[in-house]
Amino acid sequence: MNAEAAANEENKSEKRTKPSLWKTISIIFESRVATIGMVMVAFWVIVGCISLVWTPYDPNSSDFIQNLSPNATNWLGTDHMGRDLLSRLMQGTQVILLKTRLPGGEHSIPGGVAIWGVLGSLFLGVILGLNAGYRRGWTDQIIMQVLDALIAFPQIVLYLVVIAALGQGDMVVILAITITGAPGVARLARSLALDIQTRDYIRAAETRAESAWFIMFREILPNARGPLLVDSMLRVGYAIFMIGTLGFLGIGLPPPDPDWGSMVNEARKYIFVNQLPVIWPALAISTLVIGLNLFADGLREELMRYQK
């Protein structure tokens, strides 16, 4: 009944108005959970953006006394090598969210490792999932069988195998995130496609003899984007988590740029002396992941309400 009310409201609105982008964004603010989540994520994105042009000190030079507590010059203290923790923490955002270093050179492209990895798995997963879900039958069987094999790998083991085989590097991490994420995305896309393809508008498209690719990408995909978007956000969270873990294990993103996981790894040997160098990056990872989770949860609820 609420939807009807909403629909009625809209009927009153001006004729021939396109649904505005702002309206879509405003959904987020209707949910408190989503708003909190978005603020948390936005905080780190902004911190990262600032660090691109300015950090308090050089993140990689040992300019200060070791293991300082927070003070007026070093707001978050210094680490065991006398490096400013705030600067390092700020720059740690970059490789995850904002830039990917291309192999070999000094060049990097915008969009962090976590983002590209998730985009990769989204691309691969959607293609596979839509094909499996829409075509069904043998295509479905084969695709799902292959995905089952991929999903059977514990993620971190798959990372380890990939890294053992291909070595370290931003691209390898992106590849690993793509491979580990794709089966999950594909399963989701498949279940959505299986559901959506029962709808009458798909039959209508079929009675126009539209091609399978048209139906999959023009008729099904636009209606699956909500859940896929929510899922992708959660996946960015997982990816950040994983990058942190790999960094901690010392096999993640290569130096020199600091990432949060490797900061923890370096600092843990001195944890009896100074806990702060572990606490700050840990907090950073947790808040970013929690933020993404809340954002996704809130968005999902709102989307469901909106569709009802």
């Binding site: 969270g237 942190g244 873990t245 901690f248 843990r268 990872i285 947790s286 929690i290 989770n293």
Partner: peptide
């Protein structure tokens, strides 16, 4: 949302 390695260390 807290990585294992952080939990473990603490």
């Amino acid at each position: 949302s807290t990585p294992e390695f952080v939990t473990g260390i603490f």
